[in-house]
Amino acid sequence: MIKFKGVNKWFGKLHVLRDIDLHVSPGEVVVVCGPSGSGKSTLIRCINRLEKFQKGELFVDGTPLHDHSTNLTKLRAEIGFVFQQFHLYPHMTALQNVALAPINVRKMKRADAEALAHEKLARVGLADKADAHPTQLSGGQQQRVAIARGLAMSPKIMLFDEPTSALDPEMIGEVLDVMVKLASEGMTMCVVTHEMGFARQVAHRVIFMDEGSLVETGKPHDFFANPQTDRAAQFISKILTH
């Protein structure tokens, strides 16, 4: 589904992704972790080309992203992206947020798109918040609307960039629950997160990154119990003890 081959990226002189090789299968849930500045967000932002990379090959659902003639708009419509800070459209209600792309990108009829949006909002447990504006919702609710917004496009892949990092602790659970459900339904997911409970429960694979390199990859249980590298061991001890 997603295939990185020797992908390299620089921000000016800063080498932020080094020789990334990674293969994500359909239905697989991959958690990406690592210290801040390790390139995890950049990595998943490459998958829908929110970030360009300079060297290497990347195929997403068979589409070559290193090829400049690739239609990015079309590709992005097939990939849901959930931001740390939600980035809902503040001038629209929750329902309009979810229905906008189906109407304007998928060319659905407004009534159909709104029915779809109601369905997706119900799926993330917000059926009663359809007419609320983002500022009238809690952080956890906003993030669930953002997930519904992604799902409304029936994406083949969902990407999550630290979806719970901006939330108050008591709201993290409600967002993770939605993600767990999504994973159990067979969605292909790449999740940048430090929620190790989530990783243990649903990830098929955990990837550890440091300084732009993919340092270690393994099944969650093995990774946490028995990290292969010192760097990963250090990281795990830090996030598990703090």
Binding site: I79, F81, V105
Partner: peptide
């Protein structure tokens, strides 16, 4: 810029993002 990124990430063209997301705000 983040509103633009959010709109682009879901498959809206630059023009549509300006029309439906940026200008109304």
């Amino acid at each position: 810029e983040k509103q633009m990124v959010a709109a682009r990430a879901i498959g809206m063209s630059r023009f549509k993002a300006i029309r439906y997301i940026i200008l109304p705000q």
